[in-house]
Design a protein around this nucleic acid. Structure first.
Lengths: 168, 168
DNA sequence: ACGCTTTAGTTGACGCTACAACCAAGTCAT
DNA sequence: ATGACTTGGTTGTAGCGTCAACTAAAGCGT
């Protein structure tokens, strides 16, 4: 089967999307590290916990939400534990499972980090767009996500009709 | 100064954009590793070289185009050199500079990798969008990029009126 | 010509992530 | 209830990226 190459419009859109995908994580990471001593991934982990019932989640569920392998999450959560931002304990209902719960200190950390993060999100992305474009962006991402995430691992974060255990 | 929090539309758009930014690199990386034994970053380095005059670029310029620190690029280019995909040599005009040139083997590798990569790009993103959305995506990215890239490091890749030494 | 500064790049140590191997708790068939 | 399988998670190793320190060439003022 022959490859359908990109036409000029597609190529232009693709290159620009790639540039955004390349630059955005670094921009967020830099701000959070500087202002709160957290990587963007760590912040995201804490943020997911902060919105969960009882600020507690199973490792597996937390891994799904953060798009992390269990290995990665295990290492990260150990470090967050050592820093006193979360605590881990064996799940009473299922002895195999580990629960992660945000500590008060972790909660304070998220609360303190959030405004700067939101400001950065505005400054780099949202405030550059018209309201129409914000809607378009949402529609575009919604069209793409089923292909990027066929197993719907992150569906909770972007699909209103998802199981809705936790919404970010 | 008080933080302006995100309204529902902004929040929805943002969450979906984050999911895309989180998932897309992995999707591209997986395909390229499986089919060509290259990370996405390595592929991108080779692709930049493949479009440069004489398939040669200075390390600094290559670093700009790929959004990489010189350190990172130094490590990666050493590995690509060891694999015979590029070669490095001191620049004749400026003894401090190192030039990286794509070898014939490197060229063959890119040529062989490109179709599968483009297929994946289509399958995961472009084919999910209408032509109007492709145009919107381009406009949205163009609005955001000046804020993400104030030094215009990647401008060559997304701005038609950029110095245009190399276009991807 | 001689230092001083700047620019270009490399190297080494450390931190984070992935992969593989592993362990422990639950499940299920007989 | 016991052996096989599955599920949930952790740990060790190796690879990649970052930061800091370093080398070498070029520019520059005197």
């Amino acid at each position: 089967m022959d490859t359908r190459w990109l036409d000029d419009d597609e190529r232009a859109a693709w290159l620009r999307l790639m540039a955004v995908v390349e630059l955005l994580p670094g921009a967020l990471d830099t701000q959070l590290r500087r202002d709160s001593g957290l990587s963007h991934f760590e912040y995201f982990v804490l943020a997911m916990l902060s919105e969960a019932p009882d600020r507690t989640l199973r490792m597996t569920q937390l891994g799904r939400l953060t798009n992390a392998t269990l290995t990665r999450l295990s290492h990260v959560s150990r470090r967050l534990d050592e820093r006193g931002l979360i605590e881990r304990f064996q799940c009473p209902e299922d002895g195999r499972a580990t629960n992660a719960r945000l500590t008060e200190k972790g909660w304070q950390t998220v609360v303190q980090a959030a405004p700067g993060h939101v400001d950065r999100v505005r400054a780099t992305v949202l405030d550059a767009l018209t309201p129409e474009q914000v809607g378009q962006l949402r529609a575009i991402a919604e069209a793409v996500l089923p292909r990027l995430d066929p197993e719907r691992r992150l569906a909770v974060l972007y699909d209103e009709s998802a199981p809705a255990d936790v919404a970010s």
